[in-house]
Amino acid sequence: QDGARAENDWSGHLARIVEAQDRAAFAELFAHFAPRVKSFLMRSGATPTLAEDCAQEVMATVWNKSHLYDPTRATVSTWIFTIARNRRIDALRKDRRPEPEDLPWGPEPEPAAADVMAMQQETEMLRVAIRALPDAQRELIEQAYFGDLSHREIAARTGLPLGTIKSRIRLALDRLRHAMK
């Protein structure tokens, strides 16, 4: 029932954390995402104890990195996914995870509401498309993201339905780059 509903836009909660260190906003974010992060980590092979510890660490990182979140480039789910993934690599593989440099920020501190909305809608369309995939293909994608499918095994087999989200992100990046000139 939860999955059938469109996901809420959580970016306002992050903005309240950045602007006012709003603990109530964080508590709501936590109630929604911490159990999902824990489930994601357990499906990736973590024990319940390790998953609990990592999920708390992930949510603490959400607070400490909240000023770096850009709602025109990712939904909150996507952004938290990247934090959980990095934490999983630290905890389960004990590898270092080199991170790319951050993109230069444009001069306007306020993201355009239309861009935030568009990113939200396109991610929702992507979610619907993934849900509609044939079981075998969706399982392959889940294996790649939750499991430990190596880059050789992933090959070109996943055929992910990325649709227009790619061009949306590319446009956002272009705009950022031109804003810096």
């Binding site: 999955g3 996901e7 999902r36 992060v37 994601f40 990712a74 939904t75 789910s77 996507t78 952004w79 938290i80 996914f81 990247t82 959980a84 993934r85 396109e122 991610t123 992507l126 979610r127 993934i130 994608i141 889940e142 993201y145 939750f146 992910l160 990325l162 989200i165």
Partner: peptide
């Protein structure tokens, strides 16, 4: 974003 959808 695919990972975000799966997390959701």
């Amino acid at each position: 974003a695919v990972g975000g959808c799966l997390l959701a």
